[in-house]
Design a protein around this nucleic acid. Structure first.
Length: 604
DNA sequence: CGGGGCAAGT
DNA sequence: ACTTGCC
């Protein structure tokens, strides 16, 4: 049974959750100032192409705004120092460090862009309340409005505790990483995010549920509500709904005339400060891509050069990521007098995983493979552009959009867990059939898409689609392995384990042998047919062919104790916050490390 | 009217 | 498979 508060009321009326939204102050600028402290005391702008995308507070004094043209920024602030911020690599690294720091509280953390995170501290506070004489708690930081009376559900106290946790989080991010941040504390994501910037920079604000609707009224434009973007705003305005108050006062039936029922309900709720969307644990990205924009490109060969350059950089990122991509997308933007800003168009197609190989444990692609990828990109380009006519592009992009490992929602939490040397060693050993098996079935991509593979560039083995019964733990493990790295990578990686790890491996391997761990077996397995939990979105048979179907208690008990606990908790209640301790998403602490290091050198 | 990037909705 | 929306 699930007594946790991770199941919410539709109308969010119980105020049962505590959500923190953290926003790093002028993120890019802080990264640059940390890198070069002399920038700290001068007005600084981060430039991408012709735009100042952000600036430090010194520059803001002069009126340098976000997304200002460089020329305009220099007008208001001739002393402005500009740093080019088009390469996001270091920002991404810093972003990951912050994210990782927040995982330390063992709560679900959802990344939003590069510099924002949501943290659901509900369960953490529940735990604290148990071991606490719950008199009054002091609030840390600012409060939006003083409460008149204590809310009967106790949310005020909970949110005050949350404000203290938020303060701890900001302190940690500052002490250990050097970034000042703002946080917003509320009972849902919407309010937490909106209240966050009330006291900027480097401070925090809490709002109690009773002030939600009045606070929302202070926003005026509907556009300022997150998730209401340009299009939705246009649609609303066309109905004479312009302010948040308008939206609050519009009957639901009226909204349903112009929006889907779901959307109408959501819009209405948002206007009232209600939001029941959960904080979703972030994991590895679902796509990895790069774009380049420019004045204009009108020649096919130039386009090919752009793609080639993007591909070079992209392959580095993919190698760092470790997963094998199976789909490629080409994006472009045509110069168009009518539509001013970005109307992008894209085409994508499957690619053969055989383009990628693992040499010495590192994901590589041969020159021929790169040519293949480039050819695919050009084929997609041709779909978008009629080459018999002139064309003018202002942007091209290239992205890998699907990977062999399934990575969605809470399964990502497993990925973090499994990104640990000890677990991976265990995984390897449980997999000694792998070492002999050379061909793996990798077709377990995304459940629905395996039917429409474009086979033109290679063979993609279709997976047998018959359901198998699998021991639960075995299946988990199977998933984990898939997510951590490709099996062959693990295979190679095993050779690179340090002596201590190897000891562990062989030891466990021995144990495995006598204990009914018949290789390759499927005999005694539990029925999994109900698949009622998160398993169903995870692994199909294809993946199970390469994963040990006989993982058992020995393997499990070889894990560190705390991890056992967390795994148990997670299996029991996949949506709970249990589970994230030793995490190393991507290359957080070792930005320059190659995949081998990333995956096989233990943390210190 | 501009960067680069990712997730989600349809 | 594409578009929309967010930071």
């Amino acid at each position: 049974m699930d007594t946790s508060i991770s199941v919410y009321n539709e109308n969010d009326s119980e105020h049962s959750r505590c959500i923190i939204h953290m926003d790093v102050d002028c993120f890019y600028a802080q990264v640059e100032m940390l890198r070069k402290p002399m920038l700290r005391n001068v007005p600084l702008g981060i430039q991408q192409k012709n735009i100042v995308v952000t600036s430090n507070y010194e520059a803001r004094k002069y009126g340098v705004q976000k997304c200002m043209l460089v020329s305009d920024a220099l007008k208001v602030c001739p002393n402005l120092t500009l740093v080019n911020g088009e390469d996001l690599h270091d920002y991404r690294t810093a972003s990951s460090k912050i994210f990782t720091a927040l995982l330390g509280w063992k709560c679900p953390v959802e990344k939003l862009g590069m510099d924002e995170n949501f943290i659901d501290v509900t369960n953490l506070i529940q735990e604290k309340l148990k071991t606490m004489n719950e008199t009054s708690v002091t609030l840390t930081g600012h409060i939006y409005n003083e409460p008149s009376i204590e809310c009967p559900c106790g949310c005020h106290n909970r949110l005050r505790i949350a404000s203290q946790i938020a303060s701890e989080m900001r302190k940690k991010v500052y002490d250990e990483l050097g970034f000042t941040t703002c946080t917003g504390i509320a009972h849902n994501k919407l309010l937490a995010k909106l209240i966050c910037p009330l006291h900027k920079p480097n401070d925090q604000t809490t709002i109690f549920p009773e002030h939600a609707t009045s606070f929302m009224l202070s926003l005026t434009s509907v556009r300022s509500i997150p998730s209401i973007g340009t299009k939705t705003t246009e649609a609303l305005i066309s109905q004479k709904i312009i302010t948040v108050r308008d939206l609050q006062e519009t009957p639901l039936e009226e909204l349903k005339k112009h929006f889907s029922s779901d959307m109408a309900v959501r819009l209405k709720a948002l206007s009232l400060g209600e939001d029941s969307t959960p904080v979703k644990q972030s994991g590895k990205p679902l796509s990895i891509g790069l774009e380049d924009s420019f004045k204009t490109v009108s020649v096919k060969s130039e386009v090919e050069d752009k793609f080639s350059a993007l591909l070079q950089r992209l392959l580095v990122l993919v190698r760092e990521d470790g997963r094998i991509p199976v789909s490629l997308r080409v994006t472009l933007r045509k110069k168009d007098a009518k539509r001013l800003s970005s109307h992008r168009e894209s085409r994508q197609s499957q690619i053969s995983p055989s383009i990628f190989s693992l040499t010495n444990g590192v994901l590589t692609v041969t020159d021929a493979g790169q040519q293949k990828l480039l050819a695919i990109a050009m084929r997609l380009f041709n779909k978008l552009i009629d080459l018999t006519k002139p064309f003018h592009l202002t942007l091209v992009g290239l992205a890998f959009t699907k990977f062999q490992e399934r990575m969605t929602g809470r399964s990502s939490i497993v990925n973090y867990l499994m990104n640990d040397i000890s677990v991976q060693s265990v995984l390897n050993l449980s997999n000694d059939c792998d070492t002999s098996a050379t061909s793996m079935d990798y077709s377990a991509v995304s459940p629905s898409s395996s039917t429409t593979t474009d086979h033109s560039d290679g063979e993609v083995e279709p997976s047998p689609k018959k359901p198998k019964k699998v021991n639960w733990i075995a299946k988990r493990r199977c998933l984990a392995k898939e997510e951590v790295a490709s099996p062959s990578k693990l295979k190679v990686g095993e050779l690179r384990l340090n002596s201590k790890e190897l000891e562990k491996v062989s030891e466990l391997r021995l144990n495995s042998r006598d204990r009914s761990l018949t290789p390759r077996a499927s005999p005694a397995r539990e029925n999994m047919s109900d698949a009622s939990d998160s398993m169903k979105d995870v692994v199909e048979d294809g993946a199970c062919n390469v994963c040990p179907s006989y993982v058992d208690k020995e393997v499990f008990s070889a894990l560190p104790d705390d991890m056992q606990q967390e795994l148990k908790a997670m299996w029991k209640n996949p949506s709970s916050s249990a589970g994230v301790t030793r995490s190393s998403p991507r290359n957080v602490n070792k930005p320059k490390s190659n995949s081998i290091r990333k995956y096989f050198v233990p943390h210190k």
